[in-house]
């Protein structure tokens, strides 16, 4: 079969690409479009390092075919910051030292952003369960959860940026 032609809005920009059926959205992002911020940790939906937001919903880009992106709006880690201004989740990850190696960080930030988009005031338990699909082997999650809770407070206007 010839390659599929797909048009999608990626990080706010209309993007066209060609892909083969079996290529996942993660393959497309990394190898076709060159957005390598989304990482492959498992390719089976178990680690969350490839998390992206598709039409407002958090998904693993390794569990979605590239062709399914047709007509969709996709946000990757590269689209989380607003130009020079970091998203509060990004800023709080830095301030809380919520990353060590940084490999799981893009997926965690995308997932945390999706959480706060849906639930501006999560409990610690809610945050932990929401992020259970994002494995981090370095931090023990402590500072990650603190960063997410602090970012939520900032976004609610209850804490300083």
């Amino acid at each position: 079969m010839a390659k599929q032609h797909v048009t999608a809005v990626i990080n706010g920009e209309e993007t066209e690409f060609l892909c083969e059926t079996q290529q996942t959205m993660l393959d497309v992002l990394r190898d076709v479009i060159g957005l390598t911020g989304s990482k492959e940790g498992c390719a089976s939906g178990d680690c969350g390092a490839c998390s992206v937001i598709v039409d407002g919903r958090l998904v693993c880009s390794c569990l979605m075919l590239g062709v399914e992106a047709e007509g969709k709006a996709i946000t990757t880690i590269e689209g989380v910051a607003d130009g020079e201004t970091l998203h509060p989740v990004q800023q709080k990850f830095l301030e809380h030292a919520a990353l060590q190696c940084g490999f799981c960080t893009p997926g965690l930030i995308v997932a945390a952003k999706a959480l706060l988009d849906e639930n501006p005031n999560p409990t610690e338990t809610e945050a932990r369960y929401w992020l259970a699909g994002n494995l981090c082997r370095c931090t023990g999650y402590d500072k990650v959860i603190r960063a997410v809770m602090d970012a939520a407070a900032v976004m609610r206007g209850e804490a300083a940026r």
Partner: peptide
């Protein structure tokens, strides 16, 4: 804040597979 921090929270940091 660590010097490589912004690269890592924005997806710019280059790992070997990148």
């Amino acid at each position: 804040i660590r010097p490589d921090g912004v690269d890592k929270v924005t997806g710019r940091a280059v790992f070997a597979a990148d």
